[in-house]
Design a protein around this nucleic acid. Sequence first.
DNA 1: AACCAGGCGCATA
DNA 2: TATGCGCATGGT
Length: 283
Amino acid sequence: MGNPIFSHAVESTGQRVVLPIPPPFSLELTLDCGQAFRWEKQADGRFRGVAGKYFRYFSQLDNGVDLGNVIDEQEYNFWYDYFDVGRAYAPILETISRNLTLARAVAFAPGIRVLHQDPWEALCSFIISQNNHIPRIKGIIARLCAAFGEPLGEEMYTFPTPQALACLTPDDLAPLRAGFRARYLIDAAQKVTDGQVDLHALRTLAPEEARASLRKITGVGAKVAECTLLYGCGRVECFPVDVWIGRVMEELFPQGLPEIAVPWAGIAQQFLFHYIRFADTDK
DNA sequence: AACCAGGCGCATA
DNA sequence: TATGCGCATGGT
């Protein structure tokens, strides 16, 4: 799966490697809109974080992301997939914006893209998210990685593998202060390692089967399953309904999401989530 | 200093 | 099928 763009990306800049993403794209909105929990903004405006086995500093460019300067083709392809660069957003935004309410949500923060994260990390992250605040979710995940991931330097760590968690007890996870969610993480790790849940198959299974598979895990209900499929499996038709989106549906779409948005419900959801939380919607 | 959080499991009816 | 409650812990 070599990427012909890679050599051009290196040569054209000399120093840094550029991941080209056509506008509208905002690195900050994309990394900090509540879909990923391991990116932190630096004082200099760069974003620092880990995905997969890579620890990176990124910064926004007019035409995409500055990935840094020591990067090989394999890593380039990883980030290409992570930012879902192969998906053309302009036509999607144009289509869903035919609905006036969605148009408002898109216009409020048009640079958001839905990331293509690792399914295991997404599963764990959204198990941890339940009945929790985003700042605390980030803290628990950071402690989880520090305790059971592999060090990458600068106090950054990989996300722990299912195998690394499967043999643990809730007591072992006590330092995370994850509360009642600790045993959910362990159950997830065990069901993934023993094959009861096949994360790879979630990409291609029929939606209802994929949901049912994930919900075999204790602590995984409709919302966490949907988040795993959307953020971890590239299933952009999946539509997580949390308290915020519940409010959106009640107030803005009492008769359901517009048909034109259904194939990209998950993308629409991310715009609506950000919009309802941060825009001044009452008027 | 309470309040309640990107929910879920379980007990009731 | 539909409600309602408790849950660990701690940001705001």
